[in-house]
Each structure stands twice: as C-alpha cells, then as structure tokens.
C-alpha cells in the first residue's frame, strides 16, 4: 500500500482492507505514538466537512505529523479560479501526502493522476468516501467479531448515499446478505444490484424498516432528506417506515448493532441512544484509528 492512493474502496483488495483493520486495532490500543515526525500532510477541503476533517487532523496530530491546507474552498486560490490541476501540482511540492474532500465526483481520481504523491479521498461529491467505508468495516468487525456471512440492513436514502454504495461493495467480499430499505424512488441503484448479482450474493429491497429488524446483524441507518420528496406531506405519511424508535427494537437479535455515518437528524430517535444496540458514537471514534492506520500505511511506516 506504500505510496498508493486510496480514491475508491475498490482500489484496495480484500487482503489489504483486512490489513488496515489489523493496524487500526493497534492504534486503538495505542493512539498516541510519534510515528509521523517530520512528515507534512496536506489537508485540502474544497468543501467544508467538520467531522471527517477533524477526525483526520486528530489522527495525524496524535501521531506527531504536521498539517497544512485549507478548510473550505473560499479560503484557497480556488476562489480566484485556479484549476484543480494547478492546485494539486502546487501542493504536491509542499507535502508527503494529500487528504482531500471535493464537491465534484471524480475529483480525487483526477488529483491522484496529477500528483506524484499519494492522495486519500475524504469524499468526492456523491461518489466515494473510502475511509468512511473502512471505519464502517472496522466497527462491524468490532461488534460481530467477523465480517463473513452477516446480514446487513441499509435504511434511508440508498440512491444518493455514497456510504451505502461503498460499504455494499466492500461487504460483498465477505459473502454478506443485504436488505435495502427505502422508498421506491430512493432505492439502491441498479448498478449495485447488478454488482451483487454478478457476485452471486443475496439481497432484497423493502419499503419498511420493521420487517428487517428481527433479521439483521447490522442495521445501517442513513439520513433521508425531506427535500427529496416532492410533497412534504408524503414524507409525513411514510416516515414511520424509515425512523427508528426504541419500541421498534424489541424483536432485534441479541448481537444486532445500529450504525449511522452521522450526522443524524430524525431517523434515529434519541431514545435509542441509551440502548446497548446503539453503536454510532463508537463508530465515529473508530474513524480516528482507521485513519491513523491508512495514513501510516500509505506513508510506509506501518
């Protein structure tokens, strides 16, 4: 993995992904180590993102690395109309690794082809967010002690939700079974159904969360934006099918855990937070360890 960009989850094979999980575990035990002494890491956020950016910066700081960069395009030369190509070429001379978030799909792939130094994609538009996928895998492994043969339910906006798409691709390496719960017009795109068909994996598409709760090992919730509905009244009518409450959880399996990429709005009621199944805050914390692993592996230190 040394010097190899991580743009899409498919850039790393199953063994490499498992290796990241292993190294993440080491960092979970010992997150403060001066491994990145002398390294300069560029953090280019062409679009604001508090959570992902802080998690990266915290991960790097705990390892003693230096960070340069900007936190939104407004404070960079992009505002003056500089091309992405030129921004990347310039930063390439100043740093050992670039972490970037960009509003356009494919921006990270393009940057990785312009730069000589490796790129970590911290989200490119609606396309990929592979470090989120790795932390999701890590969390699933942590809660289930395995990744193989799990039954995973995805709920919410499955059409535009990039975390769902990438995690589906990643879990397909582990013979998992999938339930996609969404209103018809926000269901998982055909592209991903064809992908699962090719792999010979089982999946179902459903319209109601209550049907999957008794069956799944992981319930992966995502936000449904009300604005996606042409009529807000429509949302009010169906919201019970996509919002999770404590009272819904009764038939859940003992090992079942609820995950969410955060931030959540209404899709998980706060009365779920205190339940043993609620795992989304630990999930967010795992982001730091997984990013420590990815950064140090790409820099060739681990």
């Amino acid at each position: 993995m040394k010097n190899r960009s991580l743009v899409s989850i498919c850039d790393y094979n199953k063994d490499e992904q498992l290796k990241i999980l292993e190294v993440s575990k080491e960092f979970e035990k010992k997150p403060k180590q001066r491994l990145l002494d002398g390294f300069v890491i560029a953090s280019l956020f062409f679009e604001p993102s508090t959570r992902t950016r802080l998690s990266f910066e915290s991960a790097i700081n705990m390892l003693g690395g230096r960070i340069i960069g900007f936190t939104d395009a407004g404070s960079s030369s992009v505002k003056k109309g500089e091309s992405l190509r030129d921004t990347i070429r310039t930063v390439n001379n100043y740093s050992d690794l670039i972490v970037m978030r960009h509003p356009l799909d494919g921006a990270a792939r393009f940057a990785s082809e312009v730069a000589d130094i490796p790129i970590i994609n911290a989200g490119d538009g609606a396309n990929q967010h592979p470090t989120q996928t790795m932390l999701d895998l890590y969390t699933i492994m942590q809660t289930q002690n395995k990744l193989e043969n799990l039954k995973v339910g995805f709920v919410g906006d499955l059409k535009y939700g990039r975390t769902v798409h990438s995690l589906t691709q990643a879990l397909a390496n582990f013979n998992c079974e999938f339930s996609f719960v969404a209103p018809n017009f926000l269901q998982i795109p055909t592209q991903y159904k064809e992908f699962l068909d090719e792999k010979g994996l089982k999946y179902e598409t459903l319209a109601n969360i209550h049907e999957v709760i008794p069956e799944v090992d992981i319930l992966y919730m995502t936000r449904i934006q009300r604005e996606r509905f042409s009529d807000p009244q429509e949302y009010e009518k169906v919201k019970d099918a996509y919002e999770l409450k404590k009272s819904d959880m009764e038939p859940a399996k003992k090992n079942m855990k609820v995950l969410h990429p955060l931030p959540r709005v209404n899709e998980i009621n706060i009365d779920v937070d205190s339940m043993p199944e609620a795992y989304y805050f630990q999930q967010a914390l795992n982001g730091v360890f997984v990013r420590q692993a990815i950064v140090s592996m790409i820099l060739g230190i681990k």
């Binding site: 091309s83 992405l84 356009l104 799909d105 494919g106 792939r109 393009f110 396309n127 990929q128």
Partner: peptide, 26 residues
C-alpha cells in the same frame, strides 16, 4: 468542470454499449 479528457470503460457490449466513467464511477 476541469480541462481534461473524459475516460470510460466499456462494461457491456452485448445489449447496447454501456460505459463506466473512470472518474465519477457512474
């Protein structure tokens, strides 16, 4: 949005051509 070449992989040739964008992955 950027001055660059587009790039596609041909993923299906049998029932009409299907292309996958190398960049946005759609």
């Amino acid at each position: 949005h950027e001055e660059m070449n587009s790039e596609f992989f041909v993923v299906d040739k049998t029932n009409g051509i299907k292309l996958k964008c190398h960049f946005c992955e759609k």
